[in-house]
Design a protein around this nucleic acid. Structure first.
Lengths: 159, 159
DNA sequence: ATCAGTGCAAAACATTTGCAGCATG
DNA sequence: CATGCTGCAAATGTTTTGCACTGAT
């Protein structure tokens, strides 16, 4: 169920990769990276902007959030996750494939919950070898109701 | 690899379910259903609107396309697929779970290719039982390069 | 001093909603 | 003939872009 925080050195790793790719240092970029490094699961651009406005090391303009996201995604330092509802979410990707996980999405309350499963990973890799396609990444989303909403729903059916 | 067309009676099935749910008949709704019934894979709202404008039984306004999509999705007659790039795609869902499949997405040319895999389905169902979550649907997207783009990319690396 | 990085405002999208008129049951 | 269905246009929400200014190297 690995929902530990991203280890603190992901930020350092990202900074290194960015420097290697010729990027200069910048305050907005660092603020977004530090925030993402501290997350247990994916954030939307809006959530990133809000978090930095309130409690981050400094506020960052929306456009800069998107620009940083784009840079990080191109270097595969973060992954974009589309769980529907028209917004994208982003989370740190670790170099060794560690902390790799997928998502449960509650279609009632829109909560996003990470989960990991080794059997699923093994199967996905076998499938990736089987298809006539050069698979680089995979994204698995399980939709349904989380514990709270499932309980609420069942109560309604009874009442 | 099941990329057969949806069988013609999906449209009839959908019409029946809609009637049962209290919907009246309408030209726009029928045009969208007939189009979706004839597809091998998921279409975006824009693609649906364009297809109906050009070659469909009649053109349908964008708002109506979205409204019909919404109705069909609520009755689980279609599935929404989010492959990124900010747009949603929709495809017919068959009552018996037949023709159920997932998607390969080429991140170069944005092509979407359906694939099916029994082992993967079995694994997903086991995982769904294992998590503390009431799983209703699952969506699996494999990102990478399709045959054409992979070849093109390899040539560039050499040249 | 150069040129990347940033903020702001406006633009470009996909999608939703309000409302007036048409058509089904 | 009442009410659901549809089209149009405007609103909404997310993401992108243009441009002037700031700041890293």
């Amino acid at each position: 169920m690995s929902d530990e925080l991203a280890p603190p050195d992901w930020a350092a790793h990202a900074a290194e990769r960015l420097a290697g790719a010729g990027y200069r240092r910048g305050g907005a970029r660092k603020a977004v990276i530090d925030l993402l490094a501290a997350q247990a699961c994916a954030l939307s651009a809006f959530e990133i902007e809000e978090a930095l406005k309130r409690t981050g090391e400094r506020p960052v303009a929306r456009a800069s959030v998107y620009r940083v996201i784009d840079e990080l995604e191109q270097l595969k330092l973060i992954a974009r996750i589309d769980v529907g509802h028209g917004i994208s979410r982003y989370e740190a990707v670790h170099p060794d494939g560690h902390h790799h996980h997928h998502h449960l999405v509650c279609d009632d309350c829109e909560k996003v919950i990470p989960f990991a499963d080794d059997e699923l990973e093994r199967t996905i890799h076998r499938v990736a070898d089987r298809v006539a396609f050069d698979v680089a990444e995979h994204e698995i989303v399980l939709h349904g109701s989380c514990g709270d909403c499932g309980r609420r729903r069942r109560r309604q059916l009874i009442g």
